[in-house]
Design a protein around this nucleic acid. Sequence first.
RNA 1: GUCCCAGUAGCUCAGCUGGAUAGAGCAACGGACUUCUAAUCCGUAGGUCGGGGGUUCGAAUCCCUCCUGGGACGCCA
Length: 561
Amino acid sequence: MSGIVEEMRSSLTHALVEALRTARAGGAVKVDEVPEFTVEVPREKENGDFATNLAMMLAKPARMAPRKLAGILKQYLSLSGLQVERVEIAGPGFINFYLKKDWVYRALPLIMLQGEHYGRVNIGGGKKVQVEFVSANPTGLLHLGNARGAALGDSIASILDFAGYRVAREFYINDAGKQIDNFGLSLEARYMQLLGRDVPVPEEGYHGEDILETVRGFTERYGDKYLTVDQEERCRVLVQYALNEKLQAIKKVLGDFGVTYDVWFSEQFLHDTGAIRETLDYLQARGHIIENEGALWFKTTDFGAEKDEVVVRSNGVPTYFASDIAYHRNKFQRGFEWIIDVWGADHHGHVPRMKGAVAALGYDPAALDVVIMQLVRLFKGGELVRMSKRAGQIVTLEELMEEVGRDVARFFFVMRSSDSHLDFDLDLAKAESNENPVYYIQYAHARICSIFKQLKEQGGEMPNPEQVDYSRLKEEHELALARKLADFPGEVTSAAKGLAPQRIARYLHELAGLLHSFYNRHRVITEDRDLSAARLVLVNATRITLKNALRLLGLTAPEKM
RNA sequence: GUCCCAGUAGCUCAGCUGGAUAGAGCAACGGACUUCUAAUCCGUAGGUCGGGGGUUCGAAUCCCUCCUGGGACGCCA
């Protein structure tokens, strides 16, 4: 399940270790142990299909020149049955392996066989991992920052699933605390206004048009029923109504964006069940909490943070941080072995505190990874689109999808690494042209499907991949394409280890490019039946791989465009 | 002031757990449609990897330092 590249790499590694052992037994090399070394794919193909730095790493402990060591190792190498054509020593002491041209074609029937599972690897070993992302305040609409978080988090989750982890997607609902009180007062003000009372929306409240809409709906349904009840009750009912409506809207938009969650976790639940209290008691009992100036402080400095943090204000109300600690404790208690949070860059100062809290709770802080994503800036007509929440000028995820479509939006959000700022170019995203990488990739998939359509119309059939003569594939373009296909499991591994969906985005672009080059140079359906059969398998394997990679990023694979 | 992220081709960015001659897209320039989709392809041009020091067989990559841009530093979330 790891692909032919990994297979070959481990075979060569094994052969090299054996060569060193026999050389040592024969007295040709004097070292105590096998040094750390790598077998990698050289950037330049002139340097072979695989290369190792073993001789260079051996030079110091063996006290011999690296090139001389390489010569000795080469002599002792046993490579029978490995499809190795020749071995050369090059540069400062690299040992380069040149494989028989067709070794890579073994990947083709494998891809056909594995189908939608091609690319799956098992580095996760079924480990339970939770990815928490977006977790936007349920008091408004999703903005572009949330959208990037959604695309990133969902893709990371998909990739980890493909890499052998048991993945759960979770949305943390901030439905408690100060901003909810504030939300309630804003709703109440609008409600009272609709009923003819002059109650102003609080200065720091929610002034958006969408809030007014929500309250209108409420008023149509309940009229002045809550005019006379006491204020607390009125706010409570309004908040409950509005949160429910907002949350449904968020669910719907995210669903349209291709994101579905396993769990929607309520912060209020942590208050109601006493989990926060319990967590604070737990920490206090272990001496991690002190009282100062009437407030309770968590001693984050004990865990390497710069300063302590308030967890319970002097008015007795726990802070957001207190809920967050209880929440993360809850995550661990649910049995997750790896926890991934996707946060905006404005929260990055929160990371050391959270890690400290995890340590204080008795868990391994390394089991928590926080993916920090930098800001999104929107460009239109070459100019920055200024967004201000206060002025109600924000571009929502919903609007973005209307403008550019779901596939384009999702791709653009993950094509850059999360820790670099993302400039979202609306004109480029809307362009149905060669400027747009999404169409470039999807077009490759559609083109292949078109070949199969043609094949069907001509009464042809997809050949049995076990009975195809792959030696007919001799062209550079064919070899390059097949080689890229064989890389897919390795790309999935890298993307999973680095929590880096942009690697998949990049891979897709490169794979599509190779398909286009091949397509323009060669025909698949030809008079030559055997050659056609081999090429049909090649492009079908490409189609499968493109589709699998697109799926990891939540993109569709259109059959025609 | 302290901490985090970034600085690589005209622009946007890969590469960063050390490997051989630093890559891609766009933009620019020149070519390719009687062909399974030209939303494509082929070619040309483009670089003090922010500056300086260090570590070593070898540095865009690791360490130190300086410069520039963004962000975080609240009994907010």
